[in-house]
Design a protein around this nucleic acid. Structure first.
Length: 494
RNA sequence: GGCGCGGUACCCAAGUGGUAAGGGAGAGGUCUGCAAAACCUUUAUACGUGAGUUCGAUUCUCACCCGCGCCUCCA
């Protein structure tokens, strides 16, 4: 069964078919690196990551390109304010973004940077001018003439045909012929950073970078273009206009847009005080895996309401998944196989795939795996899961995790490195008690934990429960949870 | 105003023209030295409101109410 995916361009769910047999070429609009990434940004990037992973798991060769916007008005303004170069300014936030993305287990796409393609952008603009889609204004800026591109509005479903421009509107302090015309190239104002190019000094408009870099990496027509829903208009609409005006060919076939998230029921904004970067959340003591699960488990077209209660629930769900795997890998099973179990695993796999194929319905996929977990737990209790059944169950769990990526317990090193970053930035006072505790927990090595557990086992055999409980309490403060099972003592980090 | 999305239990969240997945939380129980984990039972006369189509609607249609997004550089 093939992937059915909502296409913003057609406004419908369509069967996804790559242009070139087994190869998927996709382009995602990445971050503008002028500040730390917030939880809303990462909702989008996690959604794109899930799309990427699902395509890979479905057998496609995925070429996934993402841009880093390292030049724009805000960057130029902020770097001037801080008295550093554009490069120096953006390098810091690009690094932070990549670290954050890695903390959320977002698979690294091929990265392209706007500043590395400036001359090609100028060439692109020149070509548009030759073809009559662009014009130069007196100050040396270039604009795209929307009136000459009949398809304008097809992505955002806006009808510009009947729209009359009123008086000339001068939004950007640049002159243009129509209020709707958008900047392709901006001439520098005094004191601003600029690049020399074949069309004169200046810097690229926002939209042009994506047209140039996507075509450079993926060709004039490619499969899929992704981003946050706010990019539908004007950004993606303008990309289509530029690109198709230049090539005369369709640009991207599928347009994928992730819905914005709400925070505590309201749009996230600094003024509402509900604005959180990923780092803010980790400083509060939340695990990257909880955050990823919360962001991943709600389907991408659903307006996810991000709450701290929800984050706690997500953490509990992840714990349940991890506990289940721990149970499979640490319990003793009798010899043999139970055909019912392999059938259950196969059925679950099918449901997983079907859910994801249905426009990336991650909630369905989640339901499938938890159904399996509950059934298998009951079967284990009844002694009906046998040794040779375990691999198929683990494989199913792994298959789920190749999309969700929350099973590996690698939260602590990530949290520790964010704690260290906070110290280096002089933000030590923002490290919550929860984070401090979690980071401290990592200070006991596995071997040390094992030693204490051995001591505990001895105490228990001697029925010295006071000593045993004391050890358990000691381990608990170090973030280690002890579970006594029929098959011996099992432990995990909290 | 234009375009679009959504309103499902305490919270999060699937889903179907024939009477509601899953997770969390709560309650009771089993197991355990005690815990933890796990399991079992339990928690929506009903899916925003009203009307229509239908043998039958939460699922289709219409209206209304509410929430949200985009409408020039915010993912």
């Amino acid at each position: 069964m093939a992937l059915n995916l909502y296409n913003t361009l057609s406004g419908r769910v369509e069967e996804f078919q790559p242009l070139k047999n087994n190869e998927v070429r996709m382009y995602a609009c990445g971050p503008t690196v002028y500040d730390y990434g917030h939880i809303g940004n990462f909702r989008t990037f996690v959604a794109i990551d899930i799309l990427h992973r699902h395509l890979q798991q479905s057998g496609y060769q995925v070429r996934h390109v993402m841009n880093i916007t390292d030049v724009d008005d805000k960057i130029i303004r902020n770097s001037a304010r801080d008295g550093v170069s554009v490069q120096e300014y953006t390098a810091k936030y690009e690094k932070a973004f990549l670290e954050d993305a890695a903390a959320l287990n977002i698979e690294r796409p091929i990265l392209v940077r706007a500043t590395e393609h400036i001359l090609e952008m100028a060439e692109f603009v020149a070509e548009l001018e030759r073809k009559g889609f662009a014009y130069r204004t007196d100050d040396g800026s270039y604009y795209f003439r929307i009136a000459n591109f009949p398809g304008y509005g097809k992505l955002s479903k806006k009808d510009f045909a009947g729209m009359q421009d009123g008086a000339r509107v001068d939004v950007d302090d640049y002159e243009k012929d129509s209020a709707r015309d958008f900047a392709l190239w901006k001439a520098p104002k005094p004191g601003e950073a600029f690049w020399e190019s074949s069309i004169g000094p200046g810097r690229p408009g926002w939209h042009i970078e994506c047209s140039v870099m996507s075509m450079a990496e993926l060709g004039e027509t490619f499969d899929l273009h992704a981003g946050g829903e706010d990019l539908i208009f004007p950004h993606h609409e303008n990309e289509i206009a530029q690109s198709e005006a230049k090539t005369g060919k369709p640009f991207a076939h599928f347009w994928f847009h992730a819905r914005f998230l709400l925070v505590e029921g309201e749009k996230m904004s600094k003024s509402l005080g509900n604005f959180y970067t990923l780092r803010d959340l980790v400083l509060m003591g939340h695990k990257p895996s909880s955050i990823r699960f919360l962001l991943a488990a709600a389907p991408y077209r659903h307006q996810l309401n991000f709450t701290f209660d929800g984050l706690q629930q997500a953490a509990a769900s992840v714990t349940r998944l991890r506990n289940f795997r721990l149970r499979l890998t640490s319990s003793q099973f009798a010899e043999g196989t139970n055909p019912d179990v392999s059938e259950l695993a196969a059925e679950t796999l099918k449901r997983l795939q079907a859910g994801l194929d249905d426009d990336l319905n991650t909630a369905q996929a989640q339901g499938a795996i938890f159904d399996m977990i509950r059934s298998v737990n009951a079967l284990i209790d009844a002694g009906q899961v046998l040794r040779d059944d375990v691999p198929a169950l683990l494989a199913t769990l792994e298959r789920f995790d190749r999309i969700f990526s929350v099973l590996s317990d690698d939260d602590l090193p990530k949290m520790r490195s964010i704690a260290e970053w906070a110290k280096a930035e002089g933000r030590e006072q923002e490290i919550s008690e929860a984070l401090a505790l979690a980071v401290a927990a990592n200070q006991l090595s596995d071997a040390e934990v094992e030693n204490k557990i051995a001591e505990m086992g001895a105490a228990r055999r001697a029925r010295n429960f006071a000593a045993s409980d004391a050890l358990r309490a000691q381990l608990a403060t170090a973030g280690v949870v002890i579970e006594n099972t029929k098959d011996g003592i099992r432990w995990r980090r909290k």
